[in-house]
Computed example of a mutant assay.
Amino acid sequence: MSRKIHASPASALDGVLFDGMTIMSGGFGLSGNPESLIPVIRTAGVRDLTVISNNCGADGFGLWQLLNNGQIAKMISSYVGENKLFEQLYMSGELQLELNPQGTLAERIRAGGAGIPAFYTPTGVGTVVAEGKPVEVFEGRRYVRETWLRADLAIVKAWKADPEGNLVFRKTARNFNPVMATAGKVTVAEVEEIVPAGAIDPDHVHTPGIYVDRVVLSTVNEKRIEKLTTRPRPEEA
């Protein structure tokens, strides 16, 4: 068995969790959430966490579990959305929040993985997003300087992996996962299927195994829909 493949989510996170750490968690809404690894972090009880993620799960699921357990001290994200607990804790001052435009969040993570400490973007100039940040003019337009994001641990969810940790993501579950995989000191991927070496066409690899330290089969694959809206078919109306 590959040294990267672990027998359980708990084994995959063994020795990498500590109080005060920064964790990147993939997903967008509930799509592509590392559903099996988040409960292990909850059970471990590590506290004062800074969590970098597009949002913070949904009521009762995903990163919400860590929030509800009082383990998260700060969120770096782009969407509060319909997460009432997230809103309440922020408004009461119990949770720090660094809110980012969504594209800026993605680029800050990508920059962290690429070793680029800062970059300029016009997004947010003249708003609270730019407060306290340097602003410069390039070709007559103002740009705010944003800094990279990196983490002690990146947890991501992929569709397939091989023993070397090469990852393939499925459809919209790709979202923030590939960039986060590059920006963690340790990257742990939970996957729906582990295939033999050579089974993934090199041209189909989304995240090369050089970025992935540990791989584990998912034990939770609920793939919940955050907000389901339905309507009757025309013939049933």
Rank of each mutant, 00 (worst) to 15 (best):
S2T: 12
R3P: 00
R3E: 13
R3A: 11
I5Q: 03
H6L: 15
H6S: 09
P9T: 11
A10T: 15
S11M: 12
L13E: 01
M21E: 03
I23V: 15
G26L: 04
G27H: 11
G27W: 11
L30G: 00
L30N: 02
N33Y: 12
P34Y: 00
E35A: 15
E35R: 12
L37E: 09
L37N: 10
V40H: 06
R42F: 08
T43P: 00
A44Y: 01
V46P: 08
V46N: 08
R47D: 13
L49Y: 04
V51K: 01
I52L: 07
N55K: 04
N55A: 12
A58I: 07
D59V: 10
N68R: 14
N68F: 04
N69H: 14
A73Y: 04
S77D: 12
S78R: 01
Y79L: 13
E82M: 11
L89T: 01
M91G: 02
P101R: 06
A106N: 07
G112R: 04
G113C: 01
A114T: 02
P117V: 01
P122V: 00
G126T: 00
T127A: 04
V137T: 15
F138W: 14
E139R: 14
G140W: 12
R141D: 02
V144S: 09
V144F: 04
E146Q: 11
D152H: 14
K157L: 10
P163N: 06
E164T: 08
G165L: 02
N166Q: 06
V168W: 04
T172E: 13
R174A: 15
N175T: 11
F176E: 09
N177E: 10
N177S: 15
M180F: 06
K185Y: 05
E190G: 14
E190T: 13
E192N: 14
P196W: 13
A197I: 05
A197E: 12
G198V: 06
G198W: 03
A199Q: 11
D201G: 03
D203Q: 12
V205W: 08
V205D: 06
V205N: 10
P208Y: 04
P208K: 10
G209P: 04
R214I: 14
R214P: 12
E222Q: 14
K223F: 15
R224K: 15
R224H: 09
I225D: 03
K227A: 11
P232Y: 14
